[in-house]
Design a binder for these strands. Structure first.
Lengths: 208, 208
DNA sequence: GTAGTTATTGACTTTTTGTTCAGTAATGAA
DNA sequence: TTCATTACTGAACAAAAAGTCAATAACTAC
């Protein structure tokens, strides 16, 4: 007699991460309110009851999704800036291209659009995201620009403004892709755009 | 005896526009799903029943909001491009600054964030928006860039890419402001950013 | 003023979906 | 093999918000 292969397994440790992953996928696609917990559960391979075993309610699940997804992205980049030697425009390209790379493959990059959509409905979470991601990456790029100015490689501009000008286009293109991939007749390649954007940028930052 | 001042008035003609305006305000702030029709009605100074007198259901109201809000913005700009004489960078600045201006005052500019958030839930509407606004304004700017290249004012770049690089930052900053105005510790002035972005841009587009 | 018309109301019904929990079956220890 | 433990299920419950409609009050024409 073969083992009667159980209809489900007990996997206490793996569940939370799987549920969060499923929730991220659906939240990022449909938004918080339009996502049904039944669907999250189904995608995670469990039932709704199980979701409530690990998360207090829908809102707490949402917060968990954001918190888990957001954190680890920036540390690598920050050390990269600390340790860099050589032309600052090279570092800028390194940062932009690796960012574009990650955007194309990591599921976590869907979080930008999600936060943009839900920020006003979750003010505390919005603040967390702004502090932990937006401001932090802005500072990262502002830092690179500042050093480039100090070294004489870039002309004197407001580093914080420049940081916005550096980050905004990439995020926007990514968000656009997510929102309008079905209807945009001429989709852009993220990495190609990053390259284009970078070229424009460094020439704009150089001395005249 | 004075007129007993009626508790409400019959204003068949004015209602649709008022309801749409109220709906736009709330949809743009909270999103489609999180907006209650009771609140739309209240903000429009009517009751829910009245909303259903003029719109078949919530989804149709949403479509009406987008369709009514989106259309008139671009015509002015398109004639401007047709009739322009002189430096193309001047026209570029004219377009960018007037756009930033409109973004700061017109309630209709909330539509970008709304469409980004809801596009995947309303594919047909997303296509309408992309055709009528996104692609159209992209073409507008691509046109200016192209002519600038032809006249020798700008170096040879892919006009469509450049158009994206021109439009994306402004839209992104606006969307950011809407989403994170409560938590961003250092809010940007849209017009100041537009100026900064423009300066970077034209230097990036010029011949080396 | 009066009567007929209809724009508007507000209470009601329906639908949807978040939330709960008693029961069930997988697991590990004895 | 048996038993105790508990992760998980699924059906049932409750709340919230969409959608309906008979009654009402504002308006218009006479």
């Amino acid at each position: 007699m073969n083992t009667p292969l159980p209809r489900w397994q007990r996997r206490k440790d793996a569940r939370p991460a799987e549920i969060i992953q499923a929730a991220l996928t659906l939240f990022a696609d449909k938004g918080f309110a339009a996502t049904r917990l039944d669907d999250v559960a189904k995608l995670a391979g469990v039932t709704k009851g199980t979701v409530y075993l690990y998360f207090e309610n829908k809102e707490e699940l949402f917060k968990a999704v954001v918190r888990e997804t957001v954190v680890p992205a920036l540390e690598f980049a920050e050390t990269l800036v600390e340790e860099h030697q050589g032309a600052w425009s090279d570092l800028l390209w390194q940062l932009l291209s690796s960012w574009a790379e990650r955007m194309e493959h990591a599921t976590s990059s869907g979080i930008s659009r999600l936060m943009i959509a839900e920020a006003t409905n979750f003010p505390e979470l919005a603040r967390f995201y702004v502090d932990e991601v937006v401001v932090r990456s802005r500072r990262l790029f502002a830092d690179v620009i500042s050093r480039g100015i100090q070294s004489g490689e870039f002309r004197e501009v407001d580093p914080m403004m420049a940081a916005r000008a550096v980050t905004a286009p990439l995020v926007m293109i990514k968000v656009w892709k997510q929102s309008f991939s079905l209807c945009d007749t001429e989709p852009v390649d993220l990495k190609a755009f990053a390259r284009f954007h970078f070229d424009l940028l460094v020439q704009g930052l150089r001395h005249r």
